[in-house]
């Protein structure tokens, strides 16, 4: 008989017990609730920055953070929809800029009523989204390539259309800059732009979780073939997602005009990557089919809190960029680890 003992005989009931380690169990919980990890990170970062600098938690500063987050936060709603279908949209910033230039020029130059100008801006956003959708479905281009191309096209169109000139807020009807006005809510001044952003989150969250369309968006991103065999028209779902994203980007254009009190063809084009950052930190998987818009809101707030907190701590803006970069890498690594729960 061998001296080295083999493993003790398995308890027959053992397979019915939860034998996973605490770490594995935590992973299971994080896997089931994708918005949980960004929520923990947000709370921790608010606590830490609040302890580092007492001005951080001042109502005026909290109000500033929300306003700084409003535009990227709205872009990130559109980005979430597209990433849930296992796509990506590199053109969100340029669509927003093009839409904002159209709205500003039409309303300030040609005497078109402000409300009609906003509708024309909405149509611009939806048309841009529709073009992206057609390239992805009809031409079967990978979303990365299709939107890389349209990113340049929309950026150039915005510059050509505006002749590179900024339209100042004072030259526009008051309705266009209304999104920059603030309303006091319990000591904190909240801008109407922030409220419109939250409305976009509410509508997107409802559509994704409570309608058949939302289930189909998740199914298409999760497993295209399974969705097709279940009788879902993949192309119809994809087109609708890109159209909805275009409409949300037009809303972001309106919020941007109010926030900057101007419409500039040079500001916001680089927000594509910021929106992807918010989505990824918010726990939505780049592989599609997993994530929520609430996670994205938390992700956008985390980025805002880090940038604001680090700048209050007196650190150079380069350190903010460094910190956001590290956050993205940590978030994606965490996502990879959490996804290993899949059997």
């Amino acid at each position: 008989m061998s001296a080295t003992t083999t493993a003790p005989p398995a308890d027959p009931a053992a397979e019915f017990l939860d034998r996973r380690s605490p770490l594995e169990r935590a992973r299971g919980v994080l896997h089931r609730y994708p918005a949980l990890s960004p929520a923990i990170v947000l709370v921790l970062s608010v606590v830490v920055f609040g302890m580092l600098n007492e001005r951080f938690l001042a109502p005026a500063n909290l109000s500033l953070i929300t306003q700084q987050v409003a535009v990227v936060g709205t872009l990130a709603v559109a980005q979430t929809l597209i990433i849930l279908t296992a796509g990506i949209d590199l053109s969100v910033g340029s669509v927003m800029v093009l839409s904002s230039m159209v709205v500003a020029q039409v309303a300030s130059g040609s005497g078109v009523p402000a409300a009609l100008a906003l509708l024309i801006g909405l149509a611009t956003g939806v048309a841009c989204g529709g073009l992206n959708g057609l390239l992805v479905t009809r031409l079967s281009l990978p979303p990365f390539i299709a939107t890389l191309g349209t990113f340049s096209v929309f950026t150039a169109l915005a510059l050509l259309y505006s002749h590179g000139a900024t339209v100042r807020g004072g030259d526009m009807p008051a309705l266009l800059t209304w999104t920059g006005t603030t309303i006091p809510v319990g000591g904190v001044r909240v801008s109407t732009g922030v409220m419109l952003m939250l409305a976009a989150y509410l509508v997107a969250a409802y559509a994704l979780s409570r309608t058949a369309w939302g289930k189909h968006v998740y199914a298409v991103g999760d497993d295209k073939e399974a969705a097709r065999l279940s009788g879902i028209s993949i192309n119809r779902v994809l087109i609708s997602v890109y159209l909805a994203a275009g409409a949300i980007l037009a809303l972001a254009a309106w919020i941007q005009i109010g926030r900057a009190n101007a419409a500039s063809p040079n500001v916001g084009v680089d927000m594509n990557l910021d929106s992807i950052t918010a989505v990824v930190i918010g726990g939505t998987s780049l592989f599609g089919g997993r994530g929520t818009v609430w996670g994205t809101l938390l992700g956008a707030l985390i980025v805002g809190v880090f940038r604001n907190g680090l700048s209050l701590a007196g650190l150079d803006v380069l350190y903010q960029t460094l910190a956001v970069g590290i956050l993205v890498i940590v978030a994606v690594s965490l996502d990879q680890w959490i996804r290993k729960v899949r059997r």
Binding site: A219, D222, D223, E225, A226, L229, S230, G289
Partner: peptide, 11 residues
């Protein structure tokens, strides 16, 4: 019922 089952794993 297809061999691939045609289910969406995350739903």
């Amino acid at each position: 019922v297809y061999q691939t089952l045609a289910v969406a794993p995350s739903l």
